[in-house]
Amino acid sequence: MKHPKIVTVGVVGAGGFIGQYHLKRLSTVIEGVRIGAVYDINREKCDAIAAQYGAVSEATTEELIESPDIDAVVVTAWNAAHADLTRKCIAAHKPVFCKKPLATTLEDCAAVVQAEKEAGESLVQVGFMRRFDPDYRKIKEILKSGELGAPLMAHCVSRTPRIAPSHTTAMYVTNIVIHEIDLFRWLLDEELVKGQMLFPRSTSLAAEGLADPQLALMWSESGVLIDVEAAANSYYGYDIQCELVCEKGTIRLPDPAAPIVRSRLQCGFAILDDWSQRFPTAYQMELQHWVDYVRGRVSQPGPGCQDGCAACAVAEALIRSQTTGQVESVTL
């Protein structure tokens, strides 16, 4: 892999919300990078974004990926396109940052892993940004220190006030619980080996036919039990909670720092509205790490193909459980 002083990136899926979010960060707070080209299926929007950032508006993804002016690629397209686009980047020997998930099937994930193996270099970083959140990193440090003994179980909450009309019951796993899947593989330094999805009473705020909320249960190799409440119509705000129960104590993810306001007969703080407000530092740090790796400033790559593949395997087990109602084993 070449290590340019300034990385010229191309962004695929530039017109979507996450694409525009990453473009803004790449152009304002990430060091050592410039935006060279963009692609989006909406050509009018793509041209406007290209003009905004002084970039080339490419007519196809292939032209962007294969351009000699592009050093690396950021993939923020729709989920089903991730595997194909990532393989094309690998074939062009271009480092690629792919937002989660790496692929929507385990078969496609395995194909990406094989392509990178044949390329002979680490080219892929998957957007599991919670690994870069300062508070989750502190949790990992406490676990690693051993001061609280072995972890026994974990309780997690992932609540979103609204969701796109196209959201499906399976997407509670692939788009929401997927974060906790990767997070606990990383926190515990072991694989998740089985899982189950449970359906409580659905909220009246959910679209017809959509199971919301859902409860994921996952077991690690050593027997740690992790439960995750996933809700996409929570109404009141975006709320992420995590508590680990260990032999000698507990570790709890703090709420985001915010002023506590006392007024007549009440006291409290504002609840955030979406993920971009909750995890700005994590999103910044994951992109900075990727750019630094491409530049040769850090030697350790971020979460890669194997992590994306392992997360997909757990997700497939949970999705099977949505149909069977049983505990399903993870098959890698």
Rank of each mutant, 00 (worst) to 15 (best):
T168Y: 04
T174S: 13
T169F: 00
A154R: 02
L152P: 02
E147S: 04
A154S: 04
T174L: 09
A164L: 13
S145C: 05
L152R: 05
A164E: 10
I176F: 13
C156L: 07
P165K: 01
V157D: 10
K144W: 00
K144I: 00
T160H: 13
V157H: 12
T169D: 09
S166P: 01
R162K: 12
R159W: 14
S158L: 13
A154G: 03
L152C: 01
H167M: 03
V173D: 02
V157R: 13
P165A: 01
A154Y: 03
A150W: 15
P151S: 05
R159A: 11
P161G: 05
A154W: 01
S145K: 15
K144N: 05
Y172D: 04
M153H: 07
I176G: 00
R162P: 03
R159S: 09
H155L: 15
H155S: 11
H167S: 10
L148Q: 03
A164V: 09
I176K: 06
R159C: 12
V173A: 04
S166F: 06
A164N: 11
T169V: 07
H155Q: 13
S166K: 08
N175Y: 05
E147K: 10
H155P: 03
T174V: 14
V157C: 10
A170M: 07
I163E: 11
G149S: 04
T168M: 11
H167N: 07
Y172Q: 04
T174I: 07
P165R: 06
Y172W: 09
S145P: 08
A164F: 07
K144Q: 05
T174H: 08
R162T: 08
L152N: 06
A164T: 10
P161N: 12
N175C: 14
E147N: 08
R159H: 15
P165L: 01
I163K: 14
P165H: 07
E147A: 06
H155D: 14
P165G: 01
P161V: 07
N175V: 07
T174W: 01
R162I: 04
N175D: 10
Y172R: 08
K144D: 04
C156I: 02
H155I: 15
I176C: 10
T169C: 10
V173M: 04
M171H: 12
A154M: 03
S158A: 15
L152W: 03
P161S: 08
P161T: 09
T169L: 05
E147G: 03
A150V: 11
M171W: 06
M171D: 14
A154I: 00
A164C: 10
A170S: 09
I163V: 12
T168I: 04
G146E: 03
M153A: 06
T169A: 12
P151R: 06
K144M: 02
S145N: 10
C156W: 02
V157Q: 15
V173Q: 05
H167P: 00
A154N: 00
C156V: 03
T169E: 14
S145D: 05
P165D: 14
T174K: 09
L152V: 00
L152M: 00
A170L: 08
A164M: 12
E147W: 13
V173F: 08
P161C: 09
M171C: 04
S145L: 03
S166Q: 08
Y172H: 15
G146R: 02
